[in-house]
């Protein structure tokens, strides 16, 4: 991209991108640690995830303030304007991912009974792994200004939805088999849902990146795999 005539303008846009990347790095680490703390039942790690959420909020505020200042000072046009508006949206999506991870970590700190077998945990870890890949890729697409990579992320959210769906059925089965597993299974259900929603935020970011780079909206058919809301569990069926 050609430089602006006013160099300070480039610097301001650079700071905006740097802060987004910083937020992204924090959110990725929170995702990894939140799921890790669940798998290892590591309460102190879970607490550290909860604490880190404040940093994301702070960064999001800084991005919003800087964006407002740049708009007021520079009256940005075209791709610059899309970049700034996009930064605000992406910051908000990453902040939401942080909230979801904080929620997972909070659950870990209050879990007591751990009835469910390791299979569900492995499923959650697999989901988290996929979502982490999505989040990493979409942040790369922002950093590399790559609408193609953003579209790739956008198209590959379906697998996460499918995993969430099968996990849902599996946990339902456990709960029906052994009512003592209900508390823990319910926690896992929420945790899976949170991870799946983090994936949704990654696709939101993908849409934003695509818009920043091309000025056009991503639309058209997209694979959706989540049918858990329709899943029926009739005993004996």
């Amino acid at each position: 991209m050609t430089q602006h005539i006013v160099r300070a303008y480039d610097e301001e846009l650079g700071i905006l991108s740097a802060k987004i990347n910083q937020m992204g790095g924090l959110a990725e680490a929170m995702l990894t640690d939140a799921v890790d703390s669940l798998a290892r039942y590591d309460v102190s790690k879970a607490r550290s995830v909860v604490e880190r959420d404040g940093q994301l909020d702070l960064l999001q505020n800084e991005i919003e303030e800087l964006a407002v200042i740049v708009i007021a000072k520079r009256q940005p046009m075209a791709n610059d304007l899309r970049h700034i508006m996009g930064a605000i949206r992406i910051a908000s999506d990453i902040e939401r991912i942080g909230d979801l991870m904080k929620n997972i970590a909070k659950r870990v700190t209050v879990m007591e009974d751990r009835f469910v077998g390791t299979r569900s945990l492995a499923g959650i870890q697999h989901m988290a792994h996929l979502v982490l890949g999505q989040v990493k890729a979409v942040l790369d697409s922002f950093a590399q200004k790559s609408p193609d990579l953003a579209r790739h992320v956008w198209l590959h959210d379906g697998e996460v939805d499918q995993l969430n769906n099968s996990l849902f059925r599996e946990l339902l089965t456990y709960m029906m088999e052994d009512p003592r597993s209900i508390t823990f299974s319910t926690h896992l259900l929420f945790i899976a849902k949170n991870i799946e929603r983090a994936g949704d935020h990654a696709t939101n970011i993908a849409e934003t990146v695509y818009f920043i780079e091309t000025g056009q909206q991503l639309s058209g058919p997209r694979p959706k795999g989540d049918s858990s809301v329709f899943a029926v569990s009739a005993p004996g069926k």
């Binding site: 991209m1 050609t2 430089q3 602006h4 005539i5 006013v6 303008y9 520079r74 940005p76 046009m77 075209a78 791709n79 610059d80 304007l81 899309r82 000025g215 056009q216």
Partner: peptide, 19 residues
Amino acid sequence: IFTNPKDKRTQDYITGRFG
């Protein structure tokens, strides 16, 4: 023109870049 110009020269001009 001001949100999504097609030509790079237009974009460079309206965003204040070196043409």
